[in-house]
Simulated assay, not measured.
Amino acid sequence: MAVGLVIGGGPAGLMAAEAMADAGLKVMVAEAKPSLGRKLLMAGKSGLNLTKDEPLPAFLDAYREAASTLSPMLDAFGPDAVQAWAQGLGQDLFTGTTGRVFPKVMKASPLLRAWQARLRDKGVDLRTRWRWTDWSSPKSGPNSDPASRTTLHFETPDGPQDITPDVTVLALGGASWPRLGSDGIWARHFDIAPFRPANVGLSIRWSDHMQAQFGQPLKSIALSAGDEVSRGECTITRRGLEGAGIYALSHILRDGTALHMDLVPDIPLDRLRAKLAKRRRGDSLASHLRRAIRLDPAKRALLMEFGRPLPDDIAPLLKALPIPHDGAMPMEQAISTAGGLRLSDLDEGLMLRDRPGTFAAGEMLDWEAPTGGYLLTACLATGLWAGRAAARYAQR
């Protein structure tokens, strides 16, 4: 029986392990942390957004430059398949008004427990506190042996251990949330695209006057950077702005692109001017903005923070308030990362071109997507794809 090794116990790694077990391989999963799926469990604290229920062409647009490479994988395991997979693990699902799909229990632990039980029933050996440290094998070349196999070295609770599998799937995550296991240490073994924070908050140096607004949400706004616009919400925090609206633009903002905020996106400029022209005698500006356009305290604070000295015609400023910023927050505060193994360095089965028999999946690949179910779906899809390809390679 061929032996398959998976390094990394997150969604991509577990999906690869299940695919190899289903193909008849003897499979071991090696996870450095004391338990599996730690980042998945953290995502579950906010409801576990599994996927997004939308047509595949629109779904693929979220992956931008990587869409063409990921297309066959997401076609094989897209939003519908993710929902069927979760239901097969006993999870009842619901779809929100924006198309985001969640388990009804709004957490990840029941799904993860059921998944681990199913993997064990299929004979998958789940090892924790096994940290991969190095490997030894001649890389491919004109004089290499095509049948040679890689030996992988681990630090384990029982001391150093070596494994020489027929195939290996690496699913080591990106470089965000290092305390959960995605520390990017594995990158020292490869020539990678540099890691960059993705789905991350925006650093802003507030004046003391903004302290009263920390923790306040900004709703019904539109954020614009470059040619892209986000209608998602965000929150004013001590460190800057955080939330889905900002995360959707972080791939642009991290490079220093200017940010503008439309505080009243549902009111056209001409209509806004007309509303603002009807000011009651004796009304302060704050009262006038509250009465005329229902501008809440957080938005009024932003206007005073970045709009002063206010012009006589403040309507254009309300529609495009500049938000000075210092770029993305640190990578360890990001939900995910861009960078990693270049897709051009892997073949169509996600096998490393210079190391036959070694495959890669999940966030350690150089792709990124916004939150909203896209991240988890692609991790599952690439894990399944790599696992199936690894099984075919082993069986040849």
Rank of each mutant, 00 (worst) to 15 (best):
T98V: 03
L89Y: 12
K45H: 14
P110H: 06
P57G: 07
K107Y: 11
P103G: 10
A66S: 15
A67L: 02
E54R: 14
F77W: 07
T97R: 12
L119T: 13
A117M: 06
L41D: 10
E54G: 04
R113H: 14
L50H: 12
L112F: 11
S71L: 01
A86Q: 02
D75A: 12
T97N: 11
P72K: 01
L60Q: 08
R100H: 11
A84R: 13
L112E: 08
A117S: 13
V101W: 00
T97H: 07
V101S: 00
A67M: 06
R64E: 14
K45T: 14
A84T: 14
W85I: 00
L119C: 14
A58W: 14
G78K: 03
V101Y: 00
N49Y: 09
A108L: 09
A43P: 09
V101R: 00
S46N: 09
L119M: 12
P57L: 08
D61Y: 04
L41R: 13
Q91V: 01
K39L: 00
K52H: 15
L89E: 11
S68L: 03
A84Q: 13
F59C: 13
Q91M: 05
L60N: 12
L111K: 09
G90E: 02
M73V: 05
L89Q: 12
T69N: 07
P72E: 04
L70V: 07
S71M: 05
A114Y: 05
S71K: 07
R118C: 04
A108P: 12
F77M: 02
A81P: 04
A43Y: 02
G44C: 00
E65T: 15
G78L: 08
S68F: 04
F77K: 04
L74R: 00
F102H: 10
